[in-house]
Simulated scan of single mutants.
Amino acid sequence: MTRRIVVVTGTNTGVGKTIATAALAATSVDVVVVKPVQTGIVDDDRDADTVARLTGVPTQEWTSLDDPLAPDTAARRQGVAIPRVEEYADRLVALCEHHGTVVVEGAGGLLVRLDADGGTLLDLLSALRAVKPADVRLEVVVVCSAGLGTLNHTELTLHALRAASFDASGLVIGSWPESPGLAEVCNLQDLPRVAGVPLLAVVPAGAGTLDRDRFRDQAPGWFR
């Protein structure tokens, strides 16, 4: 079986990245989900816990910061040191020894700074590419919104990936409204066309409120 690391990023914060991560985990075999950096934990609202609740798969959270800010800003305000992205890369590769699929949920968008040295999720991807074994496949999934503005945000994210010689495996619409408007209907067709990558899945709004059995049962139907 091919081992893989699937890195999930978003075109922005609030696009449904955590629920999309859970959907990917629910449709994978021998999987662990990792949130390298979690910010905004004052109310104990953790993305890894959400994924575990929806899927039952093992999850890990490595760095926890109080303020709901970019990790480098949150760490500076809190006065704590946080790991460099290269350290995260080494730990993620080590997990491949025990799991066929390692799903990694980023924080915010592709260029949000994850460490105090300016390391971003894009830098984490580069570090993973440098240290992973040859038989471990590195994939990138971009979660985007359904509404107006998503074409521009998605193309910008993909442009940044391609500039660093990464190709996204595809897109996931993180929250599809129950009553889509003209923009959403057009974007459903236009996203894969303008992005040049396939639309992998469309996650319905409210999927995060499902119980575990219903989530796991319905998740495969969201993928194309």
Score class of each variant (00 low, 15 high):
residue 1 M to G: 15
residue 6 V to R: 10
residue 8 V to I: 11
residue 9 T to L: 10
residue 9 T to R: 11
residue 13 T to N: 03
residue 13 T to M: 01
residue 14 G to L: 03
residue 14 G to C: 05
residue 14 G to N: 10
residue 15 V to A: 00
residue 18 T to F: 11
residue 18 T to L: 12
residue 18 T to K: 13
residue 19 I to E: 00
residue 19 I to R: 11
residue 23 A to D: 02
residue 23 A to R: 08
residue 28 S to A: 15
residue 31 V to G: 11
residue 32 V to H: 03
residue 34 V to W: 00
residue 35 K to W: 00
residue 36 P to L: 01
residue 37 V to R: 03
residue 42 V to P: 10
residue 43 D to T: 15
residue 44 D to L: 13
residue 45 D to M: 12
residue 46 R to Q: 12
residue 46 R to I: 13
residue 46 R to L: 14
residue 47 D to Y: 07
residue 49 D to V: 12
residue 50 T to L: 15
residue 50 T to F: 12
residue 51 V to K: 14
residue 54 L to Y: 06
residue 55 T to K: 12
residue 56 G to I: 08
residue 56 G to K: 11
residue 58 P to G: 09
residue 59 T to L: 06
residue 63 T to N: 07
residue 64 S to I: 15
residue 64 S to C: 13
residue 65 L to S: 08
residue 70 A to D: 06
residue 72 D to E: 07
residue 73 T to C: 09
residue 73 T to F: 04
residue 74 A to R: 06
residue 74 A to T: 04
residue 74 A to M: 03
residue 76 R to S: 14
residue 78 Q to F: 07
residue 78 Q to N: 08
residue 79 G to S: 09
residue 81 A to C: 10
residue 83 P to S: 11
residue 85 V to R: 05
residue 85 V to F: 07
residue 85 V to M: 07
residue 86 E to Q: 14
residue 87 E to A: 14
residue 90 D to N: 10
residue 93 V to I: 13
residue 95 L to D: 06
residue 100 G to Y: 06
residue 100 G to F: 07
residue 101 T to E: 01
residue 102 V to A: 07
residue 103 V to F: 01
residue 105 E to N: 02
residue 105 E to P: 03
residue 108 G to Y: 05
residue 117 D to E: 14
residue 118 G to C: 07
residue 119 G to W: 03
residue 121 L to S: 14
residue 122 L to W: 02
residue 122 L to C: 13
residue 124 L to F: 02
residue 124 L to Q: 05
residue 126 S to E: 13
residue 127 A to K: 02
residue 128 L to V: 01
residue 128 L to D: 09
residue 128 L to H: 04
residue 129 R to N: 08
residue 130 A to R: 15
residue 132 K to N: 06
residue 134 A to Y: 13
residue 134 A to W: 12
residue 134 A to R: 15
residue 135 D to N: 14
residue 136 V to E: 09
residue 136 V to G: 00
residue 137 R to L: 13
residue 142 V to F: 09
residue 146 A to V: 02
residue 147 G to M: 02
residue 149 G to M: 00
residue 151 L to I: 08
residue 152 N to F: 00
residue 152 N to A: 07
residue 153 H to N: 00
residue 154 T to R: 04
residue 155 E to S: 10
residue 156 L to G: 00
residue 156 L to D: 00
residue 157 T to R: 05
residue 158 L to S: 01
residue 159 H to G: 07
residue 161 L to R: 04
residue 165 S to Y: 13
residue 166 F to P: 09
residue 166 F to N: 07
residue 172 V to E: 14
residue 175 S to M: 07
residue 176 W to T: 02
residue 178 E to V: 08
residue 182 L to F: 14
residue 182 L to S: 10
residue 184 E to R: 00
residue 186 C to G: 08
residue 186 C to A: 14
residue 187 N to Q: 05
residue 187 N to R: 02
residue 188 L to M: 12
residue 188 L to G: 11
residue 188 L to T: 11
residue 190 D to G: 06
residue 190 D to C: 13
residue 193 R to K: 12
residue 195 A to C: 04
residue 200 L to R: 01
residue 202 V to W: 03
residue 203 V to I: 14
residue 207 A to Y: 12
residue 208 G to P: 01
residue 210 L to W: 13
residue 211 D to W: 06
residue 212 R to A: 08
residue 218 Q to L: 14
residue 219 A to Q: 07
residue 220 P to D: 11
residue 222 W to T: 01
residue 223 F to R: 08
